[in-house]
Computed example of a mutant assay.
Amino acid sequence: MNIPGGLSADIFLRDYWQKKPLVIRKAFPGFTSPVSPDELAGLACEESVESRIVIETDNGKPWQLENGPFPPERFEALPESHWTLLVQGLDHWVPEVADILEAFRFVPNWRLDDVMASYAPVGGSVGPHFDQYDVFLLQAEGHRRWEFGGHCDQTSPRIEGTPLRILSRWQGEETVTLAPGDMLYLPPGIGHHGVATDDCITLSVGFRAPSVDDVLTGFTDFLCAHPETNNPLADPDLKCPDNPGAISPELIRKLGDVIARYTNDPLQLAYWFGQYATVPKSANILVAPDSPMSPDALLSEIEDGATLRWNEGSRFAYHEGDAETALFVDGERYLLRGEALGLAPVLCRGNRPDTVAMAGYLEDEALLGLITNLYNHGNLILE
């Protein structure tokens, strides 16, 4: 498998992933932006879309931030240059942008976050900064000059008087200008500064990973939802202590045994993580069809040539156990057994499941019912 631009995915993951930046010329040859600046501005006016405007200097204040949704007249009042419009989760609203993510399936589905669009006129920027996540910066329209390099962290000096984390004394190590179809990969912690050299749109393909805090609190919260965890700790073998203020080593061992009994269960960990990792980024993403469809009607549509695809923004993953496979869709878990085990890999390989590979599974009444349920809940749609 190759990454966009033709480099082997194995070589990229070995030599670049979370190690060093990579400039990829013509990663998407002949690429044209799936959205226009006016369409981005229109999305930024919508209540359900996360958007921001960054202005380099606003009434003498550096790097000021405004959060959407915006009234249409706000765009008429912006300066001619040195500002940026950011629209988060563009893949949730534009199918053509969601399709771009298919080129990044050389990492697990759960690592993909979303696609953010950045529109800027000449001089527009969000300032020199660093991110805590991996990102591919795909130039969609116009040109942007990037300075990048050097590792940054929470101790790196920042500009005061702005709500943004703008680096104050950072110097880039490399400079490149990206044209449409070019792409720049940046690992976490690498400083970078992109400035529009003409009206331009950049698409940021972002990745995610849970923090240690997310894992510890999320998994223990999941475990605590089990009814038996409400039972108090019993100590029928309690003995009179030498000092009532002492916490005995025996008690600490018992507490360790309790924690180990619940946390050393790989299957429960897989169940929690699969649900956690596929929760949609926004509750507004899943929209049920106006009219629910029966299993027979859905099968008839597919036999007539319609194809299934994931809802834009939906997340699919699976975990293979000893006797069953857990399918995770948008935070829900479905257990598959027997001849149904192969359905999960087919559904999760990409946003357009292979219709031919699914045909045999749709002959099973229960599995057809599952697919129909996913359609009626808005996880799958028909094209």
Rank of each mutant, 00 (worst) to 15 (best):
L112W: 03
R349K: 13
L335S: 12
R253V: 12
S168N: 02
P227H: 09
D134F: 02
D114L: 04
S291Q: 11
P180T: 07
D10R: 11
K281D: 11
L164W: 04
T177C: 10
Y16G: 06
G30M: 09
L308E: 00
A344I: 09
G6Y: 03
N376K: 10
P249F: 05
T155A: 11
Y361V: 12
P187T: 08
G305F: 04
L267S: 11
E303W: 14
P188M: 10
D91N: 13
H192I: 07
A344S: 11
K254G: 03
R14E: 13
E141V: 01
V356I: 11
E73R: 12
I166T: 03
V122L: 15
G123R: 09
H129R: 01
I252L: 11
P37S: 04
A246F: 10
C224K: 06
T57N: 15
L178T: 04
V97L: 04
H192Q: 05
P292C: 06
F222S: 11
R158E: 08
D15A: 10
G142I: 08
A359E: 13
D290I: 07
L362H: 02
L380D: 02
P71C: 06
A340F: 02
D237W: 08
G42C: 12
N243F: 10
P180G: 08
T177V: 14
P353V: 10
G218F: 01
V279K: 14
